[in-house]
Measured scan of single mutants.
Amino acid sequence: MQRVNMIMAESPGLITICLLGYLLSAECTVFLDHENANKILNRPKRYNSGKLEEFVQGNLERECMEEKCSFEEAREVFENTERTTEFWKQYVDGDQCESNPCLNGGSCKDDINSYECWCPFGFEGKNCELDVTCNIKNGRCEQFCKNSADNKVVCSCTEGYRLAENQKSCEPAVPFPCGRVSVSQTSKLTRAETVFPDVDYVNSTEAETILDNITQSTQSFNDFTRVVGGEDAKPGQFPWQVVLNGKVDAFCGGSIVNEKWIVTAAHCVETGVKITVVAGEHNIEETEHTEQKRNVIRIIPHHNYNAAINKYNHDIALLELDEPLVLNSYVTPICIADKEYTNIFLKFGSGYVSGWGRVFHKGRSALVLQYLRVPLVDRATCLRSTKFTIYNNMFCAGFHEGGRDSCQGDSGGPHVTEVEGTSFLTGIISWGEECAMKGKYGIYTKVSRYVNWIKEKTKLT
């Protein structure tokens, strides 16, 4: 034993070699072989497995989906700052455009905790909710729209109204504003409101030439003092309507412009014939205590009207009353817009006519005020429907199939267009061939041609 100890002390290297040989010859039971080890760690190889990531292109799944990435790591994937920024906006807080917040056709661009709407022409605001041009839906104005110097929408209202708090709607500024039905039992019968379409306001006024200088022999019209197929109006439903009495009662109609003036057809009036105007009328054979009678003290036909040349060209006249009318729910003026808007309103496509005229061709006159909704007829169809001249200051309205029309005794009465609950004068009943005849239409004086003249002559002093 002493000898062994001496050998170990003198030859430590020998001992180490012996131990190493023993270990190498022993069977290893701690580690699995290569094949079995792979069965336990069965993990798919990654895209760049075996390579240094710093030297390969980034992978979106590896960089940002398996674990949260930084902007720089995302930049490695896209290799483009702009594309990385677009991805980053949604990656950080989701897609803010998912709810489609942009209105009126706006395009949404996502941002971090926010979004941006790219608005089409005519709109602005956070969600493109603000109209900035009158060309689109009248700028959301209830009545009139004008573009300011910086191309912003400025709404306005006709006389007797003021802008509401929203700067879009119009509200009454006087007790009985024009064009409004205020009798409670008839307010439910107000005709369907007309909503502004998209309009090209630059070209809204037709490029028409008034044929002022045409000389033409007097034409022989049949029954051209021209509501057939209409309905009984309720008291106060058309408070701007008046009836004219002269040699015979209810020979023509008219509309209240203001307390002192009536507008009617020029062919209705004769110099030297006494005319009485009755406002607030409903049943011409009954006294309903809503009527107001006034005498006409002055007749002003349009300066281009000449019955000797043509009885229905420039067929418009103004009547001055001896005493002002007292405005109330049964006696209310009709609204008159400017030339541009009167023309736009007419193009809405349908209007209402009213009167006490004959209820059928050569038949009896109506006792109760009649009204009828009539569609506008395109000019080409209008011209083809008659052998008589249709001037540019006239328009056609009615039904091709016949059966409904204005008729004798309705002449001078109103053709009105309702705009968001307020009625505007767009025409004056003038003439036609018979009444409600198939293929024939009622012919009306186009008020847009005469609004400046009306307003100039009827100013209240």
Rank of each mutant, 00 (worst) to 15 (best):
Q2P: 14
N5A: 14
I7Q: 14
G13Q: 13
T16R: 11
T16V: 09
L20D: 02
Y22F: 14
E27I: 02
E27S: 12
T29E: 14
L32R: 09
H34S: 08
E35I: 11
A37G: 12
N38W: 06
K39L: 11
L41K: 04
K45Q: 03
N48F: 01
K51N: 14
K51M: 07
K51C: 04
E54S: 01
G58D: 10
L60E: 02
L60R: 02
E61W: 03
R62N: 02
E67K: 01
K68W: 03
S70G: 07
S70P: 01
F71Y: 08
E72K: 05
E73Q: 01
R75F: 09
E76H: 02
E76F: 00
T81V: 14
T85Q: 15
F87I: 02
F87P: 02
K89V: 10
Q96N: 14
N100K: 11
P101T: 06
N104I: 03
G105Y: 06
C108S: 02
K109H: 14
N113Y: 07
S114M: 06
W118M: 14
W118K: 15
C119W: 02
P120K: 07
K126I: 14
C128T: 03
R140A: 13
E142D: 12
C145K: 02
K146W: 10
K152L: 10
C157M: 01
G160C: 02
L163P: 05
V174I: 08
V174T: 10
P175F: 05
C178F: 01
R180M: 06
S184T: 09
A192Y: 11
P197E: 07
P197G: 10
D200H: 06
D200C: 05
Y201L: 08
A207K: 12
E208D: 15
T209C: 08
T209P: 14
L211I: 15
N213D: 07
F221G: 07
F224D: 11
D232Q: 09
P235T: 07
G236K: 07
G236V: 06
K247W: 07
G253T: 15
G253M: 15
S255L: 04
W261N: 00
A265L: 02
C268E: 01
G272S: 10
V273N: 13
V273P: 11
V273M: 15
V277C: 04
V277G: 01
V278C: 05
A279Y: 01
G280W: 01
E281L: 14
E281K: 12
E281I: 15
H282G: 09
H289K: 12
H289M: 15
K293A: 07
R294Y: 01
V296A: 05
A307W: 07
A308T: 14
N310I: 03
H314G: 04
L319V: 06
L321Q: 01
P324C: 04
N328S: 10
N328K: 02
Y330W: 14
T332W: 02
K339N: 10
K339H: 09
Y341G: 04
Y341K: 05
T342D: 04
I344N: 10
L346H: 05
G349L: 04
S350L: 12
S350R: 13
S354E: 03
S365T: 14
L369P: 15
L369Y: 13
L372Q: 14
V377S: 03
A380L: 08
L383Q: 15
T386A: 12
T389D: 10
Y391T: 12
N393Q: 05
N393K: 03
F395I: 01
C396V: 02
G398R: 05
S406P: 12
G409K: 11
G412N: 05
H415W: 03
T417W: 01
E418T: 07
G421N: 10
G421H: 07
G421A: 06
S423N: 15
I428A: 00
I428M: 06
G432K: 10
G432R: 14
A436Y: 08
I443R: 04
T445W: 02
K446I: 01
V447L: 08
K455Q: 08
K459I: 11
